[in-house]
Every structure is written in C-alpha cells, then in structure tokens.
Design a protein around this nucleic acid. Structure first.
Length: 280
DNA sequence: AGCAGGACCTGATGGC
DNA sequence: TGCCATCAGGTCCTGC
C-alpha cells in the first residue's frame, strides 16, 4: 500500500539513520526495479546497471525527502535516488527482516544495510542528476500536509470532472499522497459517498474534505501507518492506524456513528467502503 | 481531454 | 491435502 503516512514514517526513520552516511556497496538482485525496465523488455537506453552502481557508490546522503508517495535520497555530491514502494515495497534496515524478493541492497560502512524488499515487484527506483526535473515528481499535485492543499484548489480541480470523487482523490495530480484507505476514510468523515461525481462537490464539502484529509493523514502518521498485510516500518514493525479506521475494511460491521452496516462496493476496480446513512 | 478497464506481479486466502 | 479462482494498499497504458 504505502500511502503518504507510511512513506512519511519511513522517511523520518531513515532521516535519523542514514543522513550523513555514505554508500559503500550497491547490489541490484532484481534489475526490473529500475523505472521503465520491465520484465522481458530491454533496458531503456538511459539505464545501465553498471552506470547505476557507479552513480551511487561513494555518495553521501544529505537529505531524505518525500513528495506524495515518492522518497528521495538527495546526495551531498550531486544527484538523487528516487524510490517508489507501490503496493508491497518495504525499506528495511534490520537484517532479521530480510526474507525474499530483495530488489536493491545498499551498504554503508559501518553497520548499515538498507534493503528494498518487494513481494509483488511493482516498486521502482531511479537515479536522477536533478530530482526536481524528474517527470513523475513534477506532475504531482499539492502536498496535503504542508499547507499546499486548499479548499479552493480542490474545488477548482473537481468542478468540471464527471469521474467519482473517490477516483479523483486517488489521482496524484490533484492531491499527492492519498491512496485507497485514506480516500475512503476522508470521504466518510466528510459525509460524502465515494461514487458522487467530482462536479457535485460543493464549496462547503470541499472544505470538509480538505480538513478531513489532513486529519486522517496526521492521525495515521501519529500511529505510524496502517498495517494490513504488507506494510511495516524500517525495523519491520507494524503501524496501528488499522485500529483507528472507521470504514475501510469494515464491510458488514455497524457504523461507529449510526450503527448502519458498512457497505463495500467496487468502483473503478477499487474497493470502496461507506455508510449509506452518514454519507450522501 | 477525461474516463473505465486492463495490465503489471506475487502470495495469501477461501471454496470445493 | 491439493487445486483453482479470487483478491490486494499503486500507477501506467489503451481504447473509447
């Protein structure tokens, strides 16, 4: 899953642990981890395994940044490593947790091994001389937690859209960092049904959505993320946000506000959970 | 342009 | 126990 709160939890842990450290060794057990390098296809022209290893070796990590669900290791010398965990990616520093599907291994002397482990192999990494020019980052919408997301922005992005509000909230060009869990939760707290058209959202509802998006993300960061099956932090520890969700994964259970049974439905190929009475 | 649906992968789970 | 179908938190691509 990792959505914004999970990636932010990882970022904070890593920032405390790897800033100022240098990369001594680089192993790439699964080259398909490179952005654009798909299984069965040839590597794109601008990607070479040897070049990648050469780019990273000896670099000192200056900052660990996050934009949406992307993590960025910015180097002191030049360049940056950009990572996306997609559905099942994990970044681990505890060797006890290294199991299978290791895709990238960074070693920093002394006593640091960072592993990108990824069951479904959807995760990706890229090296960029200047991460600010990395296209997927440039396309991201505003960050919900640094004041960049306003009701006016949201309303203007939804105003002429006929797609469901749920799928629009998952659109990273509109808001960076939301995924299915927090989209469902924010819609519940705002009293909005997931299948409502974007253009039906009023100014008042957009304000409520903004506030509730920030609320659920903040709460999840405080809980160190939502652990369903795969997500764990860099030490392999689960988060606790699943204990604080109101609708996500609660199909058939009574709504905590009104006791109406929570409904699950498939919308655009994704599971949505909602309360028929609390959400209109 | 914007939308829905499928593809990308693997492992866990549930039904028979 | 064993096999098969179904499902999963993200994003990109395709065709309409």
């Amino acid at each position: 899953m990792p959505e914004l709160p999970e990636v932010e939890t990882i970022r904070r842990d890593l920032a405390a642990r790897i800033v100022g450290r240098s990369i001594a060794e680089v192993e790439v057990p699964d080259p398909a981890i490179f952005t654009g390098y798909k299984r069965g296809s040839k590597a794109p022209k601008d990607i070479s395994l040897n070049g990648f290893v050469r780019d990273l070796k000896g670099k000192t990590i200056l900052h660990v940044l996050r934009f949406g669900k992307y993590l960025i290791f910015e180097f002191k010398q030049e360049g940056a490593l950009i990572l996306h965990l997609r559905m099942t990616g994990q970044l681990l520093v505890d060797p006890e947790q290294f199991k299978a599907r290791l895709r990238l291994v960074l070693t920093g002397a002394p006593n640091l091994v960072l592993v990108f482990q990824d069951q479904r192999r959807f995760g990706e990494v890229a090296y960029a001389q200047n991460w600010r020019l990395f296209e997927p980052l440039a396309k991201l919408g505003p960050e919900p937690l640094n004041g960049g997301l306003s009701p006016e922005h949201l309303r203007s992005k939804l105003k002429f859209r006929s797609a469901s509000i749920h799928s629009l909230l998952l659109n990273q060009r509109i808001i960076a960092g939301l995924g299915n869990i927090y989209a469902n939760e924010a819609l519940f707290h705002s009293g909005i049904r997931p299948e409502r058209c974007g253009n039906s959202i009023s100014g008042k509802e957009a304000s409520a959505l903004c506030a509730n998006i920030q609320k659920v993300l903040d709460q999840s960061i405080a809980s160190r993320g939502y652990s369903m099956s795969n997500y764990v932090d860099t030490f392999g520890k689960r988060g606790a946000m699943q204990n604080h969700s109101w609708v996500y994964d609660w199909e058939g259970d009574p709504c905590r506000k009104c006791k109406t049974l929570i409904v699950r439905r498939i919308l655009c190929g994704r599971s949505v959970y909602f309360c028929r009475k609390c959400q209109r």
